[in-house]
């Protein structure tokens, strides 16, 4: 089960309010050159199917609700990766009046990748780190549920 979890991280990409730099690099991961499908990762359009949520860009008032909603619809175990410096902390915009800051202001984040934009290798690295977290969460989740049923 955990092996399968590690080998099949389905990725959902959400653009909170990015300048599209990070988005381009994220999509580049799927091109023949980087081909993340080697690791079983595919880009999926539906949060209900996804394991890893890649968020690019800072959170503003409009994307907050959407991001939370999508996060809520994802099924456990799930991992969130903030891609790029904007998603990590707000980056150069972090004092802007209409922004809330990084992704972790809205939802729990597991992996942070800085860069403006990060290189595809770094994004793949984020996915791999996300996979590790996924495995851990999966184990914990199983243990947790076992506890709950025994208790």
């Amino acid at each position: 089960m955990n092996l399968s979890r590690a080998r099949s991280p389905w990725v959902l990409h959400y653009d909170a309010s990015s300048c599209n730099g990070c988005d381009i690099e994220t999509v580049a991961c799927m091109t023949p050159l980087y081909d993340i499908e080697r690791f079983g990762a595919i880009s999926i359009g539906c949060p209900k199917h996804a394991d890893i949520l890649l968020v690019t860009g800072t959170i503003n008032h409009k994307s907050l609700r959407v991001l939370r909603n999508i996060y809520e619809q994802m099924t456990e175990p799930k991992v969130v990766a903030a891609i790029g410096i904007c998603a990590t902390s707000g980056g150069v915009f972090h004092q802007s009046y209409n922004l809330l800051g990084g992704v972790d202001k809205a939802i729990p984040v597991d992996v942070y990748i800085s860069g403006c934009p990060p290189r595809p290798e770094a994004i793949i690295d984020a996915i791999v780190m996300g996979v590790e977290k996924l495995k851990k969460k999966g184990k914990e989740g199983l243990a947790g549920s076992a506890e709950a049923s025994s208790g």
Binding site: Y14, C46, P47, K48, H61, L64, R65, V66, L67, R68, N69, I70, Y71, E72, Q73, T75, L100, D104, K105, A106, I107, P108
Partner: peptide, 28 residues
């Protein structure tokens, strides 16, 4: 689970509120 509406669902907020409401100050 609620239906997928590209994340733009407007529904009764009870489940949404308890998610991470402590992270953002209420007024914001």
């Amino acid at each position: 689970s609620r239906v997928y509406l590209a994340g733009e669902n407007l529904e009764d907020a009870d489940s949404e509120e308890d998610l991470t409401s402590d992270m953002i100050p209420a007024g914001d």
